Amino acid sequence: MFSFIQLQADTLTNAASGVVVENIAANNEISVLEFIFKGGFFLIPIAILLFYTFYLIIERYLYISKFSKIDARLLGDVRDSLNSGNLDMARSIAERSDSASGNVIREGILAVGRPIAEIESNMDRAADIEIAQMETHLGHLGLIAGIAPTLGFVGTISGVIKIFYSISVTENISIGNISGGLYEKMISSGAGLIVGIIAYSGYHLLNGRIDNFALKIQKQVLEFVNIIQKK
């Protein structure tokens, strides 16, 4: 009889303990937004860098996609106009393409009649200008890739300094006090690394598209020069 009563008491105790643990766990749950805000002041500049990074990536991607298009029929139409001696038509065809390659070919058309070396030089300079316009503000992404993780690290270090200062004042060196402060301050490091990875990836992906365009435009310059030489 005593054993039965003891068993019932243990069961009730375990059940009550389970309820308490569940209530504590429920009370300790926080939303993702609340968790992020625990990162401290340095999350503000990191968030600003994140939005600017997305803006740069989207804006540059749209610009590069629009102006780096290579129209396979453009050189053929220009060749037909040049062979017929109609330079004005060839120039208007290049201008209508509304692309970087069209602008480069237009420079070559405007130089028709000059030495081949001069025509090629003019087209190369025009290509360099178009590439430079595509690369506008891309350096900012490279800068953010280095700054954002550094800001996050500085935020963590400043938080750790505050924790140890608090310990020196209150002499409270409990694990809960230290670990609670550390996980909050390391949020800024994680956020900075994420922003840095996004900026670094966007920088190299966009530069890859520009390099691809540079290769294609050089091929078009050579084709245009060959067309002029065959006239």
Rank of each mutant, 00 (worst) to 15 (best):
D80C: 08
L82N: 03
L82S: 02
N83A: 12
N83E: 15
S84F: 11
S84P: 00
G85A: 08
D88A: 11
M89R: 14
M89C: 10
A94Q: 03
E95C: 05
E95V: 12
S99Y: 00
S101V: 14
S101P: 01
V104F: 01
V104I: 13
I105V: 07
R106W: 02
L110C: 07
R114L: 13
P115W: 01
P115F: 04
I116W: 06
A117I: 04
A117Q: 10
E120Q: 14
N122Q: 12
M123V: 04
R125P: 02
A126G: 05
A126Y: 00
A127Q: 01
I129W: 07
E130P: 01
A132G: 14
A132D: 14
Q133A: 09
M134V: 05
T136K: 15
L138I: 08
G139N: 11
G139R: 04
I147Q: 03
A148G: 07
P149Q: 07
L151Q: 03
G152M: 03
F153Q: 05
G155L: 10
T156H: 02
G159F: 02
V160E: 05
K162N: 13
I163P: 02
F164E: 08
S166R: 05
I167E: 06
S168Q: 09
E171F: 10
I173N: 15
N177P: 03
N177V: 14
N177T: 15
I178M: 13
I178A: 07
L182T: 07
L182Q: 03
Y183F: 13
K185D: 08
S188R: 04
S188F: 03
A191Q: 00
L193A: 07
L193N: 06
S201W: 08
G202C: 11
Y203H: 14
Y203W: 09
H204N: 15
H204I: 12
H204F: 14
L205H: 08
L206I: 07
L206H: 03
N207P: 07
N212C: 10
A214D: 14
A214R: 13
K216D: 12
